[in-house]
Amino acid sequence: MREPAGQHDLRGLSGRGPRRGAREGDEGTTALELAFVAPALLLLVFTTVQVGLWFHGRNVALQAAREGVSQLRVIDDAAQAAGERPRVEDRVLRYASTLGGESLLEPRVASSWVVEADGNARVSVTVTGRVVSLVPGLALTTTQQAFGEVERFERAEL
């Protein structure tokens, strides 16, 4: 039977009649599904962000160690290296603090300049720090090390 013009069946819109596609007893299932899915999605998001923060802190420590190695490699004398190492370590510490900002906390630097048995001098710089954490009580640290051989500058023969 056809309804008169201007009159429509509004039972489905008023909330009193059954919804289209809804089965009897399905009320509240969306909220229940969201209660299970939302924590899993939040955990996935926070884990992704935490992994990204850890990788960033790790990269900052590695780049700071490389910077220190590049500064120590040009020192060709053990006595001069002993005097320069504290200054280089201080510059690496400032570099890591500046570049890392809040992602690499409490950076520490250690370096070495040693002459190997073959007569070549090698340098290494180690940067260790705490990575910022989204989870209270979770202590993530990173230690990165860079090595290099001391450059030898020789006079070119003419």
Results as ranks from 00 to 15, higher is better:
Arg2Ile: 12
Ala5Gly: 12
Gly6Arg: 10
Gln7Glu: 08
Asp9Tyr: 06
Arg11Pro: 04
Ser14Glu: 07
Ser14Cys: 09
Gly15Glu: 03
Gly15Phe: 04
Arg16Glu: 13
Gly17Arg: 08
Pro18Tyr: 04
Gly21Ala: 14
Gly21Met: 09
Gly21Tyr: 07
Glu27His: 12
Glu27Trp: 08
Glu27Ala: 14
Gly28Ala: 04
Thr29Phe: 13
Phe36His: 10
Val37Met: 09
Val37Ser: 10
Pro39Asp: 09
Leu42Glu: 04
Leu43Tyr: 04
Leu43Asp: 03
Leu43Trp: 06
Phe46Trp: 08
Thr48Glu: 06
Val49Pro: 03
Gln50Cys: 02
Val51Asn: 06
Gly52Trp: 07
Gly52Met: 08
Leu53Met: 15
Phe55Ala: 10
Phe55His: 12
Gly57Asn: 02
Arg58Cys: 03
Val60Ala: 01
Val60Lys: 00
Ala61His: 00
Ala64Ile: 02
Ala65Leu: 04
Val69Gln: 01
Val69Gly: 00
Ser70Leu: 11
Arg73Ser: 05
Ile75Pro: 00
Asp77Cys: 08
Ala81Tyr: 00
Glu84Ile: 05
Glu84Lys: 12
Arg91Thr: 12
Arg91Cys: 04
Arg91Pro: 01
Val92His: 01
Val92Lys: 00
Leu93Pro: 01
Arg94Gly: 10
Ala96Asp: 01
Thr98Met: 11
Ser103Ala: 14
Arg108Asp: 14
Ala110Gln: 11
Ala110Pro: 01
Val114Pro: 04
Asp118Arg: 05
Asn120Tyr: 12
Ala121Lys: 00
Val123Cys: 04
Thr128Pro: 03
Val131Asn: 02
Ser133Phe: 02
Val135Trp: 11
Pro136Cys: 03
Gly137Ala: 07
Leu138Gly: 07
Ala139Asp: 14
Thr141Leu: 03
Thr143Ile: 08
Thr143Cys: 05
Thr143Phe: 03
Gln144Thr: 06
Gln145Ser: 10
Gln145Lys: 12
Ala146Ile: 01
Phe147Cys: 05
Phe147Trp: 14
Gly148Thr: 03
Gly148Leu: 03
Gly148Lys: 01
Glu149Lys: 12
Glu149Ile: 15
Val150Gln: 00
Glu151Asp: 15
Arg152His: 09
Glu154Asp: 14
Glu154Cys: 13
Arg155Thr: 13
Ala156Asp: 14
Ala156Pro: 10
Leu158Glu: 14
